[in-house]
């Protein structure tokens, strides 16, 4: 099985080398692809120096959705069997990769790593969890599926999911929206428990004082996805 880890990176020079060296030692049989989404710090150089990964350097900042889709397109071209998508901030523990890949081998198309099944490790802030429960209910209403951690960026994708996401991947809020895309295209979605850490360095890109506005935008995006053609 050809496996590829996709990590979109935007100004993560402080965290990415730790993430990469850990991955290299724990998953020696898996290729790593970094997508540098127009970073303005030394992220690119840090990644090159680790000699642990291939790097796609995008000519401009496309946002997380566009960057990750680049990875799916690459995986489709190179005929990978499994794509594992991770964040570049050290939140995701490489120890969970094998369990997710095993799910894909058992016929799951999209395996989501959830921190809210066993409630271990970093559980995120109260407001963030409140937002997540709104998204959980929206997705349950639209697809009938119970996805406890719809904003988790720690996932594994089968060949069918890679082909779908290379063709069509949401730009705005890719984590929850891509669940709708996958459900509309009849992919098999499954969650497994994982343990997440707090970010090693720096702040998350989501949340803050404008989180009400953020929730309105994300709700609209999900509702429009629900209405859109597949």
């Amino acid at each position: 099985m050809k496996k590829l880890i996709i990590i979109p990176v935007f100004n993560e020079e402080a965290n990415i080398s730790i993430v990469l060296s850990e991955l290299k030692s724990k998953c020696p049989d898996t290729d790593i692809l970094i997508i540098d989404d127009g970073s303005t710090d030394a992220s690119y150089k840090v990644c090159v120096d680790t000699r642990a990964c291939e790097i796609i350097r995008l000519p401009m900042n496309l946002g997380i959705g566009g960057a990750r889709q680049t990875g799916f397109k690459y995986a489709l071209n190179m005929e990978y069997d499994v794509v594992i998508q991770m964040d570049g901030d050290g939140q995701h523990d490489p120890a969970d990769i094998n369990a997710m890949v095993a799910e894909i081998e058992n016929g799951t198309d999209l395996c989501i790593g959830s921190r809210f099944i066993k409630y271990e490790g970093f559980q995120s802030s109260f407001t963030r969890r409140l937002g997540i429960s709104v998204i959980y209910n929206l997705i349950k209403m639209i697809t009938g599926k119970r996805i406890t951690d719809p904003t988790s960026g720690y996932r594994a994708c089968s060949r069918a999911a890679i082909a779908l996401f290379a063709r069509e991947y949401p730009h705005d809020y890719p984590e929850p929206e891509s669940i709708i895309t996958a459900a509309k295209n009849k992919l098999v979605i499954k969650e497994i428990p994982v343990t997440m850490n707090a970010r090693i360095n720096g702040k998350s890109t989501i949340g803050g004082s404008d989180s009400v506005y953020f929730m309105i935008k994300i709700t609209l995006a999900i509702l429009i996805d629900a209405m859109s053609k597949k």
Binding site: I56, R57, P59, M60, G66, K73, H171
Partner: peptide, 17 residues
């Protein structure tokens, strides 16, 4: 434009390889 940027990124990596 995003499709072009994505393709350009992939092609640059392939040249590198």
């Amino acid at each position: 434009v995003s499709t072009l940027a994505q393709e350009l990124g992939i092609v640059k990596l392939e040249i590198e390889q």
